[in-house]
Structures are given as structure tokens and as C-alpha cells.
Design a protein around this nucleic acid. Structure first.
Lengths: 153, 153
DNA sequence: TAATAATTGTTATCATAATAACAGTTTGAG
DNA sequence: CTCAAACTGTTATTATGATAACAATTATTA
């Protein structure tokens, strides 16, 4: 392959646009299904809890790749809206376990097909090999940064 | 290729981690060079202006793929810190052109090699073909969302 | 020309991202 | 056992991302 014009392959720019599109598409797909009262990120928590109810906050943070302050805030919102509840752990008083309420379970059930459709759309026209390639290239970028700049991530 | 486990190729998760790493690496590379008084995003504006000084805000927004309110805010910060100045356009009184101050030019000059190093790191070990593949796969994802959800992006 | 529409920058609002710091609790080394 | 270290959730702060709405200005069109 000939020398490429690096300007046309500015990864930061491409990542930024892709994340924007990802977020906009996520929010729009929720809106189309009358689910716009909570955000894409908050749905991530609800759907995680349908698979593993009773996780505590740090676990949720780690699984979703977020930090604890953000999870605290998102869970505050979900609790205020009545979708989840916090419960003290008797064996470790530092821990707050998080459970879906009935309302939260119903919400998550409605959200699941929406998420599945969304997952189908993002990779539409992709072969399995394309998917593996994309993800592994992203991981290689991450690794480059990790090694050069000693990131925790 | 055999059926893949989609869970291990959750694009939202991978994109999120990659963007986090990208931002963390960017901020750290600035810090290592004593440039941490402004952010990676703000440097994007300074460096753009070294190439095209006198752009007005909407142009900057479009080129950087951001929206106008965010550009207003970032330019406020850069102006407060003395790196740029706004200048009214005589032929169109809606427009504010943005210019680097001397201090801003010096800052951008210091930042350029840092950015170049950063650009080198992100694609370390990548062939030109890898780069093209990564970017075009990201664009395909974006296109999928655009078509399905009628995004403006 | 006059009314309408579009553009530009701004403000306000809400949510996320990231870091630092803190209190309460638990763990572990000496 | 004791005390320092680590863990958990929280609060505060700063910046970005995104949307809605606004005033001032310019362009369009009827």
C-alpha cells in the first residue's frame, strides 16, 4: 500500500464521531420505543442487573468500565426514578447491593429487544472476521497507550 | 470463522475503553511535557488555529466535529487563559473570528511535537493497511447508525 | 420592500468522564 | 491485638457532550 495521508485517518476524530453516533443512535432507539426517560448508560446498569441482580456498586463500575463516582450518580438517578433499590450487605457494612425493583424489571424487559436491535444494527454488513478485526485493532490502540503512558485502564 | 461470542465483542464497551485510554493518554502526554494547564480538546483548537488562524467559531466546531455551545465554552477558557482572542468580523456582524495570541502560538509550538509523538504511539505496530481498516470499520459502524436512525452526524 | 427563514454565538440545563478527598469499614502485617 | 493500609461509597469540582431556546444579524422569498 502506498503512503497514506495521516490527516484522513485521525483516530481521535474518528473515535469521537463514532462515539457520538453510537450515543445518538442509542438514545434515538430508546426514544423510538418510548424509553427516553433514562439514558443509554443507565440502561446498561438495568440490563446488567437482569443478568446479575444484587451486584454491589464497585462491581457494577468494574463490569461496565466506569468509575465509582459515576456509578453512584447514575444509581442515584435510577433509585429516584424507582427502577432500582440499594440494600445494605449484612456481612460487609461497606457494601451496598443493588437490586432491580419490579418497575425496573419491567423496564429492562422492554429495553432488551431494543438493545438487541441496536446490537444488530451496529454490525450490519459485518462478517465475524470484521467484528474481530475491529475490536482487536481497538485493543491494540489501547495497548499502545497503556505501554507508552503506563495507564491503569 | 466459527460463531463468535458477541459478548466478547461488545462495541460500546470497547469504544468506551478506547476513548478513555485515548483521553487519559492524551492528558498524560501533556502532563509529561508540562502542558497540563489546558486539556487535550483545548489543544485541538490551538493546533487547528496554527494551521488556519482566524477561523470563526462555527467553522472550528464543524472541523473538530463538536457543537457550537461546546466550542463557545472551550474558547471562553482559552481566552481567559490568554491563548486566543476573538475579533469581530466587519463584513458579517454575527461572526467572531478566533486568533491565536503570541502566548497561544508559543503554546501550540510546544504542543506540536507532543501531539506528533502521541500520533506515533497510537498507531505503533500498525501497518498502513491496519490504519485504513480500523478507520473504515469505524466509518461503517457510523454509517449503519446513520442509515437506521437517520442521524445528522 | 416586507415578512420569513436561516445563521451565529450564547446561555441554560442535564448527563457523563475523571480526579481528589473524605468517613466508615475491613483487612492484614507486625 | 493494634495500627496502618486498603476498600466502599460518597461528595465536590472541573471539563466535555448534547439539546433547547434566545437575541442579533443576514439571507431569502413572496
Amino acid at each position: 500500500m502506498k503512503e497514506i495521508n495521516k490527516k484522513q485517518f485521525n483516530l481521535g476524530f474518528e473515535l469521537g464521531l463514532t462515539v457520538s453516533a453510537y450515543r445518538a443512535a442509542g438514545q434515538k432507539s430508546l426514544k423510538l420505543n418510548g424509553l427516553e426517560d433514562i439514558t443509554k448508560e443507565q440502561f446498561g446498569i438495568l440490563i446488567l442487573l437482569t443478568m446479575r441482580d444484587g451486584l454491589y456498586q464497585t462491581q457494577i463500575a468494574n463490569i461496565l468500565g466506569k468509575d465509582r463516582p459515576n456509578i453512584t450518580r447514575m444509581i442515584d438517578i435510577l433509585e429516584t426514578k424507582g427502577y432500582i433499590r440499594r440494600e445494605k450487605d449484612s456481612s460487609n457494612r461497606r457494601i451496598l447491593k443493588v437490586f432491580l425493583t419490579e418497575k425496573g424489571q419491567e423496564k429492562a424487559e422492554i429495553a432488551k429487544p431494543v438493545r438487541d436491535k441496536f446490537s444488530e444494527v451496529q454490525y450490519r454488513g459485518f462478517s465475524n472476521e470484521d467484528i474481530v478485526t475491529l475490536v482487536s485493532l481497538l485493543r491494540r490502540v489501547r495497548n499502545n497507550f497503556k505501554e507508552e503512558y503506563n495507564l491503569e485502564i
